[in-house]
Computed example of a mutant assay.
Amino acid sequence: MDILTEVLASMRTGCPVSVRTEGRAPWGLRLPAVAGAGFHVVLYGTCWLLPLENTAHTRRPIALSPGDVIFLRDGRGHLLADDPTTHATVPQPARFAPGSPIGHLTLGGDGARTSLLCGAYHLDQGRPHPLLGQLPEVVHLETRHGRHPELTAAVQLLGAELEAPRIGSDGIVPALIDALLLYVLRAWLQDQPATAVAGWAAALRDPLVAPALAAIHQDPAAPWSVESLADRAGTSRATFARRFTTLVGEPPLAYLTRWRMTTAARLLREADLSLSAIATQTGYGSEFAFAKAFKRAHGLPPGGYRRQAQAT
């Protein structure tokens, strides 16, 4: 069971929005917060990522070079500029050619060129998965000097398709942007020390917790108990519960309920299934019990959640 893929698929609520941005110094972009996670890929040239002036955070400006990838966990507002001293403005809407999945934005003067791919992944922020919450606010990954070869390859392919679009580019580019999110998270997880004692970076490779997580994700409808999950882990109930809670951040059965509700929300958004069928697939013996649990988790009954998702 590929837990990372499952987690991301459960949180996705739409296709990524992406814009090819071409800047000539001096240039500066003031980017507002988005409902999801933001990303930037530097395809050519250099620039700076800066916090908004009115932020309470003390994060320092980040210098970006060709091949660098930025992932903004909660899509917070920020600035991009050729230099930290350049005045940044809110850009005009990007231009989208008919049928194209990528918008285009050109700005600045007549100085040094910077080319970026900027965008956002639409993620369900109502009940974010703990994995997302344990990421830093800003993930900065450098792909130079042989680091993260798969991410490097994805960035190079994106750059080539955007620089010289050909037959099939309209299908290839969105697929690469989708894959980019997995590559970013994989690279970040791989960068975490093997001696980590807490967090998902450790949980996904822990010999006691990982088998139980895989079992929950593979079959959320099963009547799992702490004892049966501990059996999967090959350890005692107390040892398993303590280890799971330490790494995942909540007890095993609380996580099981979270995953069932996350799975149910995804089915309501994407599948044409009856509420009874969704209740069965998420481990509830009746539609009433499922509806009660879903409303407690999401603040809406399942039918209302589905109508709201279809309207947006």
Rank of each mutant, 00 (worst) to 15 (best):
E161W: 13
P174L: 04
P136A: 00
L185C: 10
P211S: 07
D191T: 12
L180M: 00
L180K: 02
E227V: 12
A120W: 14
A160H: 12
L135H: 00
A198Y: 10
A112M: 10
V184H: 06
V155S: 02
D178I: 08
Q156W: 08
L162F: 11
V226P: 08
A198T: 15
L208H: 07
A198E: 13
V173Q: 03
A196G: 10
R113V: 12
T114K: 03
L162N: 07
G199L: 03
S169E: 03
P193S: 05
A230K: 04
D170E: 15
P207D: 00
L117H: 03
A210I: 04
G133S: 11
R147C: 10
A203Y: 01
I177A: 04
R166A: 15
T114D: 02
A203I: 05
T143W: 03
D170I: 10
V209P: 00
Q192Y: 08
D219E: 07
V209Y: 01
V139D: 00
D219S: 15
P149A: 05
E161S: 12
V184D: 03
V138W: 01
L185H: 10
L185R: 04
L117A: 04
A215D: 05
A112H: 12
A202D: 07
P220L: 04
A194I: 09
A194M: 10
A203L: 05
P165H: 09
A120D: 11
V173P: 03
A160Q: 12
R186W: 09
V226L: 10
I216D: 01
D191Q: 15
D124W: 01
T152V: 06
L131D: 00
A160K: 11
G146V: 02
D219H: 15
L213H: 05
H122L: 14
P207S: 04
A201L: 07
D170C: 11
L151Y: 02
A222Q: 08
G159V: 07
D170R: 15
A187Q: 06
D178K: 09
A202G: 09
T114Y: 02
L135M: 02
L151P: 00
R147Q: 12
A221N: 11
A212Y: 02
E161A: 14
T195Q: 08
L117Q: 04
Y183T: 09
E161Q: 14
P174S: 06
A222H: 15
R144S: 15
